[in-house]
Design a protein around this nucleic acid. Structure first.
Lengths: 303, 303
DNA sequence: CTGAAAGCGCTTACAG
DNA sequence: CTGAAAGCGCTTACAG
């Protein structure tokens, strides 16, 4: 044994993987690797995986059917954390691997899902605006076919209907630019028709909205209250600090990772059942900061 | 062949890797996966790798000597993109793999480096402040032993000395919180000693500084001009929009990936030499936005 | 050109 | 308990 360590021997992973029919690796798939929403999730997944002796592979999930298909098929991953609900169900269900859906989901995928209740979270945002006296409220939504976007929009619509508010929706795509465009559209509305409360489907989008409104001469929350969604790192340092829906991203990544790892172990008959409670859920919460305030009468920008 | 595709046969990567003595995978190592500076680099590396038929592994580089050592040794990666200059040289040089240093570097690593000239970029920032008439300038630095932090601080010091300015340095660590702490320290200075220009070693840090100063009642750039470093995604939507040093992160990731891929191919005798010019360098530039302005006389905050 | 054999470096089941 | 053999699923070099 001493000789072994002295010569600096290292097991060859490819050989071991082949013999054991496992890869000691988990794969993270996300629709856009440069989105800051995902970064903390990646970190958490990698931390858990590393602690379990697993390696982490990462890939953009929008890289073409063939490539994505082979990622789950070539025997290089033992399990998958999937952050994209927009892949073809045949592809996802075709991978015969432990898989967990995180954040986004798709009912056609035969796999457990972990994430917040987006509908309820959107209601929270509307409730907050209602309590501040806002009556006319606007939602800057995410992409039309994104499950998260749909759930948040439906939650917004349902809650504002329940409270007899006047809701409107601007169709966006979660980006800064969509928020800015929504602000321009908002400003073009006749003063009296202008919503005084805006709920954005993402923090980025809210940053874009606020930034553009301020550039046009409006004040936040003086002229318009803005709520984001996600509570990304910069939210509390934005000016004004952003009122938003907090998603515990690190926790989400950690639990998802633990759960795939459990599924993998279970498959290999290691350990006796899951260490994580599979019904454990993730709670979103409203974080009130400075971008929302009492409803004011509409007025024109001081340009 | 038809029968093959009809049965849905897929080559087993572990078996092929073992036989061919390669992994078709590159490894990205970064000191902190949740830092937004890295996200766009990851995306670019993964894009290039995917185009070349390679898989991407990602890992935090601060996970313990043994684990990090085996990542480069177990035959699962063909090449490495290293974003951390703080690992032990014996570890890094012990991996006998194609490797490129990106952004951070360490002279003890026997591997090419790709990145901007941080010293020169810092000079650019000081030059900008000088042209706006600032005389007393402060630098909020990165961690003491970080190469990037040292280069930026030295550039700041050299350029401000050259221009006979009055420089001071607050020792930070690139974070929002460090920026905020620097702002508090700054505010405590006697009005006449207060630097009117602040150069932060990162955008996050600049956000923290601006956010905290505004909360204390100061205005940016009215009372103090602030420059960041990196030009991360939110920089142009911050309020005020952040003047900063632009680093072309996507391009950095892309070129680094191409270069490791070339090194790998070269090693396997595929292709005839590098497709990328190995002397190609990365240029940083100053992006002037709204967080900097003419030097004003110091005054106390309207609290 | 085609097809069978050897071998990549491990792990595991089995014989001694 | 120890040690030699078989085999994971491929690729490649070689014999026919």
């Amino acid at each position: 044994m001493r000789a072994v360590s002295e010569t600096g021997y290292r097991v060859n992973a490819a050989a071991r993987d082949l013999r054991q029919r496992r890869a000691r690796s988990i794969l993270i798939l996300a629709p856009n690797l440069s989105n800051t929403f995902f970064s903390r999730i990646f970190a958490a997944v990698q931390e858990e995986a590393s602690a379990a002796g697993l390696t982490v592979q990462i890939s953009d999930s929008r890289i073409g059917r063939d490539r994505i298909l082979s990622l789950g098929h070539d025997g290089r991953a033992d399990g998958i954390v999937l952050l994209d609900g927009g892949l073809e169900p045949e592809v996802v269900n075709g991978w015969q691997l432990p898989l967990i859906q995180l954040s986004e989901w798709n009912d056609a995928y035969v796999a457990p899902h972990l994430g917040i209740d987006n509908h309820a979270a959107a209601s929270l945002a509307v409730e907050h605006l209602a309590e501040l006296g806002h009556h006319s409220v606007m939602h800057v939504s995410g992409p039309k076919h994104n499950v998260l976007a749909v759930a948040r929009r439906d939650g917004f619509l349902a809650e504002s209907a329940k409270r007899a508010m006047e809701p409107s929706v601007f169709s966006g795509d979660f980006t800064l630019e969509a928020g800015a465009e929504a602000a321009r559209r908002w400003a073009r509305l006749p003063v009296l028709d202008r919503p005084t409360g805006v709920f954005c489907a993402s923090d980025e989008c809210a940053f874009g909205f606020i930034s553009e409104s301020v550039h046009m001469g409006y004040t936040v929350p003086g002229d318009v209250s803005v709520i984001g969604f996600d509570d990304i790192d910069f939210a509390d340092r934005f000016l004004p600090a952003l009122t938003t829906i907090h998603q515990p991203r690190a926790e989400m990544g950690r639990i998802a990772a633990k759960r795939v790892i459990d599924m993998i172990r279970c498959l290999h008959r290691e350990g006796l059942g899951p260490s994580e409670d599979p019904t454990q859920s993730i709670e979103a919460s409203l974080v009130v900061r400075s971008s929302t305030g009492p409803a004011s009468r509409g007025r024109d920008a001081v340009t």
